[in-house]
Design a protein around this nucleic acid. Structure first.
Lengths: 232, 232, 232, 232
DNA sequence: AATGAATGAGGGTTCATTCAT
DNA sequence: CATGAATGAACCCTCATTCAT
């Protein structure tokens, strides 16, 4: 794995090629190479390898061999745990989606109903190193690229996107209700904000040297100040 | 196929399979299937077919057979006009890129130095039906999805992206210089605006029913009003 | 397939299409088609099929499909065991080369230093049914035909050719040292003899009805008698 | 054309790529690039280009495009002058064959019935720079390599080979009739001699650094001296 | 549960051949 | 006579999937 892609491995990139990660190799049962693993753990490992491969080689050059090798396992392993390649991709997307949702949901709960904190929470997920790591951005945009021709990918995220947007609208409405804002509705503000956040991710994905996380954050801050000057 | 024609087709794309477009079908010899075409025209036709195919089947399921068939031509036609599949993709991306640049450049010239008009010009290209048609958006995001693993795609657009951003910064600076704006630099405003426009394209691509062109325009307007209240 | 078996087949070549050779077909599990084979055995089988195909269809009409089919295996089998077609050819040539060398080396050792027996050994390999079978001659000359444009083929045999020639010179020198020969050096005799032997192979390859193995042997004998009249 | 292959161009290698040979370019009608040529001349030019290509790229990598380009002509030119690729090859082989036959026939006539001169004539053709040039040797052995699978190639040379061998036998018989030789028949001597000459060609083809024309000649001389000591 | 040899469909590419110009 | 764009069959190779071990 290239350094650039590995930089956010706190989010659990899969094992290096050849040898699976052995965090606690001192435990007896892991003295030998661990060949048997609970089904769920194996599946997660393969999903992570898939994200790796997509980040490194792109969607169209990701083969099941690559995924297996990157997990340090053998040829047929994927078909043992997933019905087929498409299923692996679907599960991978669902994994990214769930991580994203868990990310903002947890923060949102901590906001405890305060609209300012809620907006910070909802926007903040885009700047979470674990969720917006380079390899995961690559994963996201790989799926975006295929979404047009594979409706299933859109369907997988549809309800979750709506849920996120609704939360954003709600938070904006909370600010507006506190008075002093004119000229835009909560939906419009939320639409602009979400679009901008996604656009920042796109820039971070395409031109990481031009748009790093800090620069993106300052752009976000400017935006919030312009829209909600009384609160930010 | 004339460029104007293809651009207005809004996802209609290149000729239908089986019968190539025959603009001047009145000529005698066209009773039989027309086989010869100027080299440049044939290449453009194939590029359009490529965008079609990418939009319809995605990057990874676009085969040279599909491209050829969608152009109503034979198997080997692509390799006759392009070195290989990758070259076809590269030329396709360059085509999209050039169209995009021509789009805003022409509008920018008409702005004649007026910053307000310049910003309208630069933002407007995202709402041009010919440039931001569904099939072309699909094309753009297909390349985005592969950009991480194929640096050539990024390189192709790099300088052009910079050029666009610089123009945007310049226009924002023009407004700021006219006074009355505080709290953000031209770069920050331009960064926010461009990110939001790209985010709107993303929404239009992924959820066209949720985000249509008109809704996107109103979001843009809200943004401009919030940032440059004295001019919009 | 055992090597000895294959060598004795005199143009019979590898297994017939449809059913691979099953030496130990009595085992239970062989009721179904045997699919797994040790890697080395599979490679040898494919090499033999390659010689077959070259003999039957020539170098330029030998396709991987033919090789696979002639081995009773599937399309992709060759690429599973060899990097590519060229590698298969290279390994095939090396196989022929090694067989040839093993042929004369073994005989030479049995000669036990006696120059007369050594010359018989070195010449004799050309008349070995296993090494100079019709299909293998076809293989040899197929590679000869491509040698000019694919230097690798020459390189593969270069050192081995030199080794053979040196052994021949050495044997001739042995005879000359025993006295009574004038008018030629050991190198010249060896050069003439080797050239003639190769020429005989050429005739056996091109005109097997005119030049069969027995006729070739008698020509060889005449040659030896004329050059080394005191010993033959 | 590589230098090594060009060194014997006195035998009329075809034009260099890009520009056809223009021996008498001063003639009016050749001021412009000569596009029209008598059929026979064009055919010969293409045959020569074919030998070139076979020498340079081998039989299996010789395409009609290469032949055409090497003649400085366009794609479809070969099919205009030959029924198909196979016909071109057949005609090329016939050309080599005819040149070879003309070579020894002419020399033989000059021998005027003297067996010694006849043998010199028959053997000498193998050392003629025009007939045994490197590129033509490459051509010969390319056809040898395909001969097994394309009987037509053998048929083309069959009668001519017999004719040559008969002449050789006849010359040997002439010497034997003059007395003093025992231990071999004319057929055996001729068989040995022809085989050796062909073997020398093979060595000159495969290992030109080891076996050059002069070395080959001296081997031939040794052979003649051993077999026909009273005449050579 | 895991392996990895084997399969076979389908991809990109080449090239002999055709044909309108 | 000559050109070169176009065709389409067939090649090599990849890879998702199967299956005996």
């Amino acid at each position: 794995m290239s350094e650039a892609l590995a930089d956010n491995m706190e989010d659990g990139g899969s094992s290096a090629a050849g040898q699976p990660v052995q965090a606690g190799a001192s435990r007896k049962t892991e003295a030998k190479r661990r060949r048997h693993l609970p089904k769920a753990a194996r599946r997660l490992q393969l999903i992570n390898s898939t994200v790796d491969s997509i980040a490194r080689r792109g969607f169209s050059d990701t083969t099941l061999s690559h995924v297996a090798k990157s997990a340090g396992l053998s040829q047929g392993i994927v078909n043992l745990h997933f019905d087929n390649k498409e299923t692996l991709f679907v599960e991978t997307l669902k994994h990214l989606r769930d991580e994203f949702r868990n990310g903002w949901l947890k923060r949102l709960q901590e906001a405890d109903g305060d609209p300012v904190l809620e907006i910070r929470a909802l926007a903040g997920v885009f700047f979470d190193r674990r969720i917006g790591s380079k390899r995961k951005l690559a994963g996201w945009f790989a799926f975006v690229g295929e979404a047009k021709s594979r409706p299933i990918y859109r369907q997988i995220c549809e309800a979750y996107d709506t849920e996120y947007f609704d939360a954003m609208v709600n938070a904006c409405q909370g600010l507006i209700d506190q008075g002093g804002y004119e000229g835009f509705t909560a939906k419009e503000a939320a639409g602009a904000l979400e679009a901008m956040l996604e656009g920042l991710w796109l820039s971070m994905h395409l031109a990481p040297t031009e748009m790093d996380r800090d620069k993106a954050k300052s752009v976000r801050d400017v935006f919030l100040k312009q829209f909600f000057s009384k609160h930010f």
